[in-house]
Amino acid sequence: MTLQQQIRANRFRTALVLLGFAVLVAALALAISVAYEPGLAGFIGIGAIAYGIFSWFFAGRMVAAASGAHRVTKEQYPELHRTVENAAIGAGMPRTPDIYVIEDTAPNAFAAGRDPKHAYVAATTGLMEKLSKRELEGVIAHEIAHIRNRDVRLMSLAAVLVGVIALVSDMLMRMTLFGGGRNREGNALTMVVGIAAMILAPIGAMLLQMSLSRRREYLADASAAEITGDGEGLALALAKLRDDHTPLHKVTRATAHLYIESPLRDHKGLRSSLGGLFDTHPPLEERISRLAEAGGFPAP
């Protein structure tokens, strides 16, 4: 798969995500209007469209706010800035992306934003402390690859759209289960429909989000190896992330897929009992061994 094909595939998938979002919102609106008040559906529809448009432009910033990432200057983090700059040059990007930092000891990183001109790379302080220069270069190159491959818009949009569906349906489920519905004494059937839709919506949202991740991680790893000319650096970094079990604090299901390595890997509560089905990332072992195979070095 060439870069151009990947970019095209991403555009197509972005359209699918938006469509999926619309369908889920419709399902949710239907469930709410059946269970509560028919007139609500129109308001929800208008609200969802407004939110969708807002998300298109501000998904990156919303993700930053949700994950506690703040923008830093070259002077504050010269080393990180240099690494990002060099990776951007290696990827042939005309502009160095903005740089954000998350104050957290867990080593992790992500990239988000609308397009290469409005994208940023975010790294935790733990990543900078725990990784060597070479390993950091690999991780940053992976994030730069996400930006160049136009993965960021899709991933950011998925985060904010899935996030809001999860939030709303969660709220509604509680309202249905613990009272507040006006038609409680009414038709039992409408209640069943309502509850079913409210359960299905978040599951659908999760599936939507998951459909994004796995192959693009492998592709970004391969691109990173090309950008730095050092696949082993990234493999060593991934091995370090594998062996580090510090939990990342500000993370939700909606933003988990953005990170270079799933921050929910060790999270018993959020990691579904369904196991692999809901994993947003391919196993680190597999990614490391693919890098090792392509680069001809022993897997760390």
């Binding site: 240099r82 060099n86 990776a87 040059i89 290696g90 090309e226 730095t228």
Partner: peptide
């Protein structure tokens, strides 16, 4: 040394392209 790194990165991209 930073410039040398950048030359290396730019060279890698150019040669790959």
């Amino acid at each position: 040394s930073d410039t040398e790194d950048k030359i290396a990165a730019a060279r890698r991209y150019y040669n790959a392209t």
